[in-house]
């Protein structure tokens, strides 16, 4: 198993007020376990605040588990981050995260350098990525003039600069037009075809249904169901219906 999560728990501690500091602890993920097989797409679905981003951040070595273990490529995400980092990458939704005063091409060059990709390899890979996300025409324009969807396309290209073995995608289709969203789905399928592993969160059920080999439904920091999309659905149900049945029963 290329990703192994065991009894993973994460709390956040925040402080309020500055005369008398009050400590507040929020449990974002409350003991989840799952494993992802190499060469598959694993979907993590759930309500806002369910703990999806927290889980992904932990797996990409940006956050330490409060308890339990997370292993990626056989290495512990906190203690052995160094071994994991060159071999994975991520695509997050949202407009932050690129240099707005650099062109798309310069941005990708910058991130390639962060991953120590040799210049000759990087050059060809950047052109491929730009072509893949449909930004070749705009590659030399400053990103501050980009639309939301164009920035998101750039984020996708950024996630590919080191040809990662595992790609973590947190709401990667946010802001994309229908063609852009389909492009992303095609990219993810091609990557899976090449043996790459993908972990995906999305609030768009048809997308999860189309892409995922396995889906975990997470609610209030715990996994409430985990199976293939077809097993999650009852006869004649869409994934949307199944989601409402499995997650909605508590919130009514």
């Amino acid at each position: 198993m290329i990703i192994e999560v065991n009894e993973f728990k994460r709390t956040y501690t925040t402080y309020k007020g500055w005369v008398s500091r009050k400590k507040e602890t929020v449990t974002a993920v409350n003991g989840i376990s799952f494993a992802v097989e190499k060469g598959t797409i694993f979907g993590l679905l759930g309500q806002n605040g369910a703990g999806k981003t927290t889980t992904i951040k932990t797996l990409i070595t940006l956050l330490a588990p409060t308890s339990g273990t997370c292993k990626v490529l056989g290495y512990d995400t906190f203690r052995q981050a160094k071994q994991i980092r060159p071999r994975i990458n991520f695509i997050f939704g949202g407009e932050l995260g690129v240099y707005r005063r650099l062109s798309a091409r310069d941005n990708l060059a910058y991130f390639s350098n962060l991953y120590h990709v040799p210049p000759s390899v990087a050059k060809a890979r950047i052109e491929d990525a730009l072509d893949l996300v449909g930004l070749t025409d705009k590659a030399d324009i400053l990103c501050e003039t980009f639309s939301k969807g164009m920035l998101q396309r750039l984020q996708i290209a950024r996630g590919l600069v080191n040809d990662p073995e595992i790609l973590f995608c947190d709401e990667p289709t946010v802001g994309l037009d229908p063609l852009g969203a389909r492009m992303l789905r095609d990219v993810l399928k091609v990557l899976r075809g090449r043996g790459k592993t993908i972990m995906l969160t999305t609030h768009y059920m048809p997308e999860a249904d189309e892409l995922c080999d396995t889906i975990a439904l997470i609610d209030g920091g715990v996994i409430v169901a985990m199976d293939t999309p077809s097993m999650l659905k009852n006869d004649g149900e869409s994934l949307d219906d199944a989601y409402v049945r499995l997650v909605g029963k508590k919130e009514g």
């Binding site: 940006l62 997050f92 240099y99």
Partner: peptide, 18 residues
Amino acid sequence: IDGRLRSIIVAPENKLVA
């Protein structure tokens, strides 16, 4: 502030060098 810190932290590049 610009939301790029995570890309830098998660990349293999030495942070002091960055």
